[in-house]
């Protein structure tokens, strides 16, 4: 049963494999270039397993100790997972103990496969989704660790490598924009953050920006509601 599920899951995850190895490696390499030993990216990719937040955590670890801010920033950056969870309430139901791991490993990519792909007939749904999640998790940890290890061997001027995070978010922004995502919400995020950056400065703008964002979005009506 598990063998079939693994075989069915593997091809769905291959594109993710390429992406995760590349991004994971740049994350591990970035951590190493900032002076962290390889077990930092290894453990962080294993336990946090939320790519964009791991990049942000590099910055957190390099600045002053602000535990509340770190927690709130994580909630905000990963708020989309709440929506993923709401979408998967039905699908994850009745999968037994596997469900705990499915929720734990619900990154963007595992979510997108598990919510759209269905296993072929005769393959257990729970195990199929388990292997999708597990494989993605493994690619990410492997990439991050490999990148950090490469950082020991390859030596070159890494000034500016942190731009990989900016580029990643710009690309996600573009993808969401082109796939018909909520443009108003996207611009609200940019506008609230930009406004608060100008008002509060780069050290303390995130929390007011988040607050302003949630307020603006709570009062805004979405298109369907406005039409209906």
């Amino acid at each position: 049963m598990k063998r079939n599920a693994f075989r069915a899951a593997l091809p769905h995850t291959l594109p993710i494999c390429v992406g995760f190895l590349f991004l994971g490696m740049s994350y591990g390499f970035l951590m190493r270039s900032k002076g962290f030993p390889f077990y930092y990216p290894l453990l962080m990719s294993l336990f946090i397993f939320a790519g964009s937040m791991e990049f942000v955590t590099v910055n957190l670890l390099l600045s002053a100790f602000q535990p509340v801010y770190a927690f709130l920033l994580t909630l905000m950056v990963n708020a989309r997972h709440i929506f993923y969870g709401i979408s998967m309430l039905e699908k994850y139901r009745g999968t037994g103990w596997i469900k705990l791991y499915l929720i734990y490993g619900m990154c963007d990519e595992s979510f997108s496969i598990n919510c759209s792909a269905s296993p072929p007939p005769g393959v257990d749904k729970g195990w199929f989704m388990f292997f999708v999640t597990l494989l993605n998790h493994a690619y990410w940890v492997a990439g991050a660790t490999l990148g950090a290890l490469l950082g020991y061997v390859i030596r070159f001027d890494t000034t500016g490598i942190e731009f990989v995070m900016t580029a990643l978010f710009v690309v996600i922004f573009l993808n969401q924009w082109e796939q018909g995502g909520d443009h108003k919400a996207a611009l609200t995020g940019v506008a609230c953050a930009g406004l608060c950056l100008a008002l509060f400065g780069s050290q303390s703008f995130i929390l007011p920006a988040m607050l302003l964002m949630v307020i603006c979005l709570s009062f805004g009506k979405d298109r369907k509601e406005a039409a209906g």
Partner: peptide, 30 residues
């Protein structure tokens, strides 16, 4: 097990992913 979330939570869940990425772009450029 099948309890439906209130509408405003669903709506916030729908729009926050887009706004959060916009925020992150600005965060990178702070």
């Amino acid at each position: 097990e099948g309890k439906t979330p209130p509408a405003f939570i669903l709506r916030l869940g729908k729009v926050l992913p887009y706004a959060a990425i916009g925020l992150l772009v600005v965060y990178c450029l702070k």
